[in-house]
């Protein structure tokens, strides 16, 4: 399964979620192929995206959040699984792009990348819903699988999607600082909430 297909399926399945995107290929796939959702690109430091998403979800329980996480970012901070299980926000769901390697860094394998079962680790950390979408799953099945994730009982819920190794070279130094990206996110979120209010 290609990252672009996953990002596109998420965009279709979760148009009402605020997105926190980790650095690396997961975030770039969402930027290039995702939806118009208000999105905060977590950027560096690596391993901070789960905490940022948890803090955001706790601060705004009236919004639904979706963390788009790279497997390398997640394994840098596996303890975040325990913090999220403990805090158990009802409004945070997680999709992990899992290819078992540091794609941006040059394709080096993660430690135990070919052995570890991230969904099992999450379940062992207390997540009531954590499932793996294996690599040869048809893209056509993604809407249903994402629907199960988004419709899971309130509490931590994760879908680990095995994606194909694909080249992901650096796209340059980036166009925005973290502060500028934050301002863009705040503006997009304010406009999005305003438009939802107008619809209501």
């Amino acid at each position: 399964m290609r990252r672009a297909d996953v990002a596109g399926a998420i965009a279709a399945a979760a148009p009402g979620h605020v997105v926190i995107a980790s650095l690396g290929t997961a975030g770039r796939a969402w930027r290039d192929h995702g939806g118009p959702n208000p999105t905060f690109y977590a950027s560096d430091p690596m391993g901070a995206a789960p905490g940022l998403a948890l803090g955001a979800a706790l601060a705004r329980p009236d919004l639904d959040f979706l963390l788009l996480e790279g497997d390398g970012d997640l394994v840098m901070n596996l303890g975040s699984l325990l913090a999220m299980a403990d805090a158990a926000p009802a409004n945070l769901r997680v999709v992990v792009f899992n290819n078992g390697r540091y794609e941006t860094g040059g394709g080096q394998p993660l430690a135990a990348g070919a052995l570890a079962d991230l969904a099992a680790i999450a379940r062992g950390a207390g997540w009531p819903f954590a499932r793996t979408v294996v690599r040869d799953t048809s893209v056509d099945q993604l809407p249903e699988l994402l629907g199960e994730l988004l419709g899971a009982a309130p509490g931590p819920a994760m879908l680990v999607v095995e994606v194909d190794p694909e080249p992901s070279p650096y796209g340059g130094p980036g166009e925005l600082s973290g502060a500028e990206a934050q301002r863009e996110f705040r503006t997009a979120l304010a406009n999005w909430e305003r438009s939802k209010g107008d619809e209501g």
């Binding site: 430091p45 901070a48 789960p50 905490g51 940022l52 948890l54 803090g55 955001a56 601060a59």
Partner: peptide, 19 residues
């Protein structure tokens, strides 16, 4: 919020500040 590492606590606090 209980955490297992302090840098996760900082990230969580940052996420709250973001919102």
């Amino acid at each position: 919020v209980r955490v297992t590492r302090e840098d996760d606590a900082v990230a969580i606090a940052g996420g709250a500040a973001l919102m």
